[in-house]
Every structure is written in structure tokens, then in C-alpha cells.
């Protein structure tokens, strides 16, 4: 019997979320964004959240709606400003949300380090820039590196294509993005999937996230066409 919880719906999948939680949210723009889980997080009413995502919300749905509800105290991301990030922009300019901007690769590696039990890592990215302020610089092998610290979280919300009953996951194309590393770095990893299959139905060679990293799954069929709406072109990273 696997310890994986197969939740009947997104609300049940988010049982127990606390105020002040740090939440990793997968997705790059809307690709891989676990829209229904974010909506369920909003419905928990949890406050003072710290959210880690590549962006800071698009349009009015998903992460943007969570921000609009005033539930997020701080966002850690690489690229908040986009053509349709008006919800975040307004909160930021009003001083109602804290922002930590992290180069995208450092963000990914900090999450990876968090899941891998590392105390931090030295990276060349960002040396000599504004984003190096306050960070330890160490010269190694004749090159300068910055110390970056790991990110861990209470909760990860991720979207994958398919899971078996052990929580072994397969993703779909570039919607994979942050999913695999976020599952590793959270105390509770919750994954919305399009399809649940029997254990053994996924080729072990094709498993991207082994079930050891996954705590709860919930089937959310791709029924809502708006959730797969492609963002408008040319929005930056």
C-alpha cells in the first residue's frame, strides 16, 4: 500500500495549509501552472503566504487571483514584470507585497539544493551585479562565485500529465519546467494530474519524478479551456 494520498478534489488535496506557509508553485507563465490547486489554495483563506514561482501572475486567474486576494506577503521569482502582470504591479507599487528577484537559474538551483539537502552553493551567475548585494563572494579556481542559499517550503503545488498509484510522475513538454525540483523541496508535494494510471503502467525508465517526492495527487481533467489558454505573445521571460 503506497503512502500516496489520492485526493477526491483540489480542496481536499490542500487540507491543513497554515497561515505563513511557504508555497512553491510550478509553471512558467501558464504552462504547467496548477491553476485548480492555486484556486483551492485561495479558498483555504490562508494568509501571509510566501510564494515561489518563476513569475508573479498573469491576467486575473490562478496566481494573479491569489495575489489579488491579499493572501501573499512575499513573492520570490525571476520575472515579475510582464505585459499582463497588472495585479502584481499594483500591489508592488502600493508597497503591499515584498519581492525577491532571483536569476532564473539560481532560483531553480536554490530549489534543487533545498530538495537535495545542500546548505547552499557557489554560482557565477549574478557576480558584480545589483543582485549580488549582501551575498558572500568567494574566489575559487580564479573565478568569483556568489553563495546562494537553498529554498525549501511547506507546500509545493505542481501540475503533471500522469501519475500512477505510487506517485511516479510524467510531465508534458515544456510544462515540466519547475515541477520535478519543486516536488523535492517541499514538506508536502501536491500534484494535479490529467490522468491516474495503475501502478506499473508507467515505464520505470520514463518516470521523471519518482513517487518518493510526491505526497498527494488529485485528478483534474483538462476540461476548462480557459486554463489552457495561451498567454499573449511577447511577454518576456
Amino acid at each position: 500500500m503506497s503512502r500516496l494520498t489520492i485526493a477526491p478534489g483540489p480542496d481536499e488535496a490542500l487540507a491543513g495549509v497554515q497561515d505563513g506557509a511557504t508555497v512553491l508553485i510550478g509553471g512558467f507563465g501558464t504552462a504547467g501552472q496548477p491553476m485548480e490547486l492555486i484556486d483551492a489554495l485561495r479558498r483555504t483563506g490562508a494568509q501571509h503566504l510566501t510564494v515561489v514561482n518563476n513569475n508573479a501572475g498573469n491576467g486575473d486567474r490562478g496566481l494573479a487571483a491569489l495575489l489579488a486576494g491579499g493572501q501573499v506577503r512575499k513573492i520570490i521569482c525571476s520575472f515579475p514584470r510582464q505585459s499582463d502582470s497588472y495585479v502584481f504591479d499594483e500591489l508592488y507599487r502600493a508597497g503591499r507585497i515584498e519581492l525577491e528577484v532571483v536569476p532564473q537559474g539560481n532560483l531553480a538551483e536554490r530549489i534543487r539544493a533545498g530538495g537535495a539537502g545542500l546548505g547552499g552553493f557557489y554560482t557565477p551567475t549574478g557576480v558584480g551585479t545589483l543582485l549580488a548585494e549582501g551575498k558572500e563572494v568567494r574566489r575559487l579556481g580564479g573565478r568569483d562565485y556568489l553563495l546562494e542559499l537553498p529554498i525549501t517550503a511547506d507546500l509545493a503545488l505542481v501540475k503533471a500529465l500522469r501519475s500512477d498509484r505510487m506517485g511516479n510522475l510524467v510531465y508534458r513538454r515544456t510544462a515540466r519546467n519547475f515541477g520535478p525540483i519543486m516536488c523535492t523541496a517541499a514538506a508536502t508535494a501536491v500534484v494535479q494530474i490529467s490522468e491516474l494510471v495503475d501502478t506499473g503502467a508507467i515505464d520505470p525508465e520514463a518516470v521523471v519524478t519518482p513517487g518518493i517526492y510526491v505526497d498527494r495527487v488529485v485528478v483534474v481533467p483538462d476540461a476548462d479551456p480557459a486554463s489552457t489558454e495561451v498567454t499573449r505573445m511577447g511577454q518576456g521571460q
Partner: peptide
């Protein structure tokens, strides 16, 4: 001063 900083992958690409 009023710009919202957004870096994306620019620093990683330039460095890597």
C-alpha cells in the same frame, strides 16, 4: 526608481 526589476534568465545566459 519606479521600474519593477525582472531578470529572468538574462544573467544566467550572459554568464553561462
Amino acid at each position: 526608481p519606479d521600474a519593477i526589476p525582472a531578470v529572468g534568465g538574462a544573467m544566467d545566459l550572459a554568464t553561462g
